[in-house]
Amino acid sequence: MTLHETEIEKDVFEVAIEFGDLPLDRTEIELTLGYSEGDIPVHFSGMIDEAVEQLPKRCNIRAGYRILDAHRPDGRVDGLVVGGTFFKLDKIVTGQIKKSARAALFVATIGPSMEEWSRKLLKGDEPALGYIADVAASAAAETVTNLLHDHVGEKMRSQGLNITNRYSPGYCNWSVSEQHLLFSLLPKNFCGVTLSESALMHPMKSVSGIIGIGADVKWKDYICDRCGVKDCTYRATRRKESLNSKP
């Protein structure tokens, strides 16, 4: 899919993504909830329908990225310099992106409306629907980020470059406090996302992070195998997907 992008500043791009562009996967939501494919009780399946129905009305999608030069400081295995700023990363993550000559710092969001609706339901009479709405909103935000990631990949491939997996502060042992560094390299209120003092994003259903770019970097499948966090929602979902895909 080719997405349209606008350069709002030098090397800073906002990418137009419509809700209709999202290949939302219902099964993914069921797996994240914990159910194996086809095992979800009918009542909760109806709630997924209700939450998914709300998404187009409530999603205000914005996504963008900035391309900056990157390099690994000599002899160091604990991070990467991007746009002159050193990001302290886990050894495993550094290993994945150390050959990057450039990096895309990105932000993607679906806006605040889904999380507000979900919170209201959770605190009111429909906590199960509120929870399912939250999971559906997270799935939408991840799907937006997938599209943005693919878009960056396509653009770089057209220039003869490769991209890495994406990494976000707060995950893979990358301190959430480094969100402040990441956002300091982006325009103010980029894509309508702001940071709290504790380095948390508003709207909540937003994803930020880094994608390595270079001639010698690679995309890796099964990145979970390399991460030390064993009890993670995403790892559990991936495991169920893998079990479901077995004949």
Partner: peptide, 8 residues
């Protein structure tokens, strides 16, 4: 069972 059942 999962979180939705627990919430119910």
């Amino acid at each position: 069972v999962f979180v939705p059942e627990l919430l119910m």
